[in-house]
Amino acid sequence: MMASPQSFRTPYEKRVALVQDTIKDNSKLGDEDAGKLAVRVLHVLDAIPEKMR
């Protein structure tokens, strides 16, 4: 019996998934739209200067 390959998720992918799940839990958006919005939200948050965070 072969072991199934484990998928590796980067820290960024984990952050996107966390934001995506939060958006889905608090809206009527589906997976795809919540995922797109999660990427945009993280991009905006990452663009905020460190002193302002």
Rank of each mutant, 00 (worst) to 15 (best):
L29K: 08
A17V: 07
F8N: 10
M1C: 07
L45M: 13
Q20L: 08
M1I: 10
K14P: 02
Q6F: 08
Q6N: 09
D31A: 08
A34L: 01
T10G: 01
S27P: 04
K36M: 09
K36N: 09
I23Y: 01
A17S: 14
E50A: 14
V44H: 07
D25A: 15
V41G: 03
D25K: 15
V41E: 09
A17H: 09
R53G: 14
V39S: 08
M2W: 03
V44W: 01
K36Q: 10
R40S: 13
D21T: 11
D25L: 09
Q6A: 11
M2R: 09
V16E: 09
D33C: 00
L37T: 01
A47F: 05
V39P: 00
M2T: 06
P5L: 09
F8M: 13
A47Y: 03
S4M: 13
K36P: 02
D31L: 13
L29H: 03
A47T: 12
A38Y: 04
V44L: 13
A17E: 15
K28A: 12
Q20F: 02
S4N: 12
R15Y: 02
R15L: 13
I48M: 08
V16Q: 08
K36D: 08
M52V: 12
V19H: 02
R40Y: 03
E32V: 13
S7Y: 10
L18Q: 13
Q20I: 00
M2C: 03
D33F: 05
K14F: 05
K28V: 09
K28I: 06
M1S: 12
F8D: 12
M2V: 05
V16I: 15
A17K: 15
E13G: 01
V19Y: 01
R15F: 00
Q20V: 01
R53Q: 15
S7R: 12
G35L: 05
R15M: 14
R9K: 14
D21R: 14
S4Y: 10
K14R: 14
F8P: 00
S7K: 12
I23N: 03
K51W: 11
K28Y: 06
R53W: 08
E50P: 05
K51N: 13
R9A: 13
M2D: 10
T10Y: 01
M52E: 14
V39M: 08
T22D: 07
